[in-house]
């Protein structure tokens, strides 16, 4: 049910996103005036900065934010777990490990091999989580997160081993996406990333109703016609694609996948379709803003954008944990 309020929220967010994007285009070491931007009277340098630096960066931030937010919204529903953030569950780490392995071990392989490797890593992580959730039952919120800790730790250890055998130039590549950045992507990479994200989003949107029904519990959802096993696989693949393509080129954009869906649910209720749409908008907005902050705070030094989203996201996580533990102590129910 998409009510008027939800539609208004979505439109307001879309408008805010457009404003933030324009602001991000204009802002930076080489300022571009808004009047010149809209008047079309840009000089050659401005045009160059805009097309080669700013625009790719803004679009990357949008795509990355939307992808992480969507993956978060889908995974929260799939695992019936409000803390099922891709990052907390170790999916970006696994994608990063896959990418790192290709960069270092198969040194000759180019960018074309990095994507599939990142996707494979992310997919393995998501399937591990799903296999675990299937065994542990629906209430295993805390244990699912512990498995996420384990995946993060294992990938961190493997990454440390790999970096120890990496060459100087390989290390630079590795460091780049460990920190996370929306900068320096070519238009062709952005196009490829966008296509992947759009396709995965379409698949998730088609499964929105089934994911929504999972809120009632797995048995009930199944009795309502949801084929849970197939749904799990489809959503796992879509989430792995979303997280992997972004992680492979921007690093882990921490906490966006946690914060965006929660804000969306607070603002537009629980209809899965509208929650996913609004999550994507919030995720994009958060990342565009985080990118502006990353460039503004210590200019001309650029801060890693993942650090900025973490600073914004950690209070959210703490708040959620407090809220859940309060609910738990009130009702005596387990997480």
């Amino acid at each position: 049910m998409i009510d008027r309020r939800a539609a208004l929220v979505a439109m307001a967010l879309a408008a805010a996103l457009v404003v933030a994007m324009i602001g991000s285009l204009a802002f930076g070491a080489y300022p571009i005036s808004l009047s010149a931007l809209f008047g079309g009277s840009l000089d050659a340098t401005s045009k160059n900065v805009l097309i080669e630096l700013r625009a790719p960066r803004v679009i990357t931030a949008c795509v990355a934010g939307a992808a992480f937010a969507l993956a978060g919204a889908a995974m929260q529903s799939l695992f019936r777990n409000p803390l099922a953030d891709p990052g907390l569950l170790g999916v970006p780490s696994a994608a990063g490990l896959g990418a790192a392995t290709v960069v270092v071990v198969l040194a000759s392989a180019g960018a074309l091999a990095v994507w599939p490797a990142a996707m494979l890593g992310a997919f393995v992580a998501v399937m591990l989580l799903i296999a675990f959730a299937q065994r542990g039952g629906a209430q295993a919120t805390a244990s699912l997160l512990l498995l996420g800790v384990a995946i993060n730790a294992a990938c961190g250890a493997a990454l440390a081993l790999i970096t120890s055998i990496a060459t100087e130039s390989q290390l630079r590549t590795l460091a780049f996406w460990m920190l996370g950045s929306f900068a320096n992507l070519s238009w062709s990479v952005i196009a490829g990333m966008s296509v992947c994200v759009v396709i995965a989003s379409i698949f998730l949107a088609r499964d929105a109703n089934a994911l929504g029904a999972l809120a009632l519990g797995e048995r009930t959802a199944r009795s309502l016609g949801v084929d849970i096993k197939r749904l799990r696989i489809r959503v796992a693949i879509a989430c792995a694609v979303l997280v992997a393509v972004v992680t492979a080129f921007c690093g882990n954009v921490a906490f966006v996948g946690l914060a965006a869906p929660h804000l969306a649910r607070m603002w537009v209720g629980s209809g899965q379709r509208i929650v996913m749409l609004v999550s994507a908008l919030i995720g994009a907005l958060l990342c565009v803003l985080a990118d502006i902050i990353a460039r503004a705070v210590a200019a001309p030094v650029e801060l890693p954008v993942g650090a900025i989203t973490s600073i914004l996201g950690v209070p959210m996580l703490v708040w959620l944990v407090l809220k859940m533990s309060r609910a738990q102590s009130l009702s005596g129910r387990s997480l």
Partner: peptide, 19 residues
Amino acid sequence: EPSVMFALTVADVVALGRP
């Protein structure tokens, strides 16, 4: 089943009868 996820309203829960 034990609980309903997220802050679903009563009308939301009923509507999920035909997802």
